[in-house]
């Protein structure tokens, strides 16, 4: 990650279910081929590139949208099993499903009644 580059940090939702941790990131304009998701030694890195709008002789008269490189990094800890992870992109939203290790899943403990 070059120091002189500015990155866009997308807004994310992160939630847990019993089996998974799910991360959703808004990355409007992202194409699957311009996105990389990596897990290495407990660190999750998401990088993506949004190319600028192709101008066909037009001029910008108003500009709010950003383009460039998306970057997100998280430390996962030992709760996540990297082999139980999958990612999909739809309508500019990345959904990353990170499977929990069995030991990290909640276990229902039966309560016995003593008679």
């Amino acid at each position: 990650m070059a120091a002189n580059k500015s990155y866009i940090v997308p807004p994310v939702d992160i939630y847990q279910t019993d089996d998974d941790v799910i991360l959703m990131a808004d990355m409007p304009g992202i194409d699957k081929d311009d996105l990389s998701v990596q897990i290495s030694e407990g660190a999750l890195t998401i990088e993506g590139n949004i190319p600028p709008v192709e101008l066909k002789g037009q001029k910008y008269i108003h500009r709010e949208r950003r383009h460039g490189c998306y970057y997100l990094a998280y430390t996962l800890g030992d709760v996540i099993d990297p082999n139980k992870t999958h990612a999909k992109v739809k309508d500019g939203v990345l959904t990353l499903t990170l499977g929990k290790r069995d030991k990290a899943k909640p276990r229902e403990i039966k309560i016995e009644t003593v008679e």
Binding site: M27, Q58, Y60, I61, H62, R65, D91, G92
Partner: peptide, 21 residues
């Protein structure tokens, strides 16, 4: 967020709206 482009024939309005149908 919106971008607006213009040329002599018209305008193009571009909106970032992720996760919609």
């Amino acid at each position: 967020p919106l971008d607006v482009l213009e040329d002599e024939n018209g305008f193009v309005v571009i909106a970032s709206l992720p996760g919609m149908s």
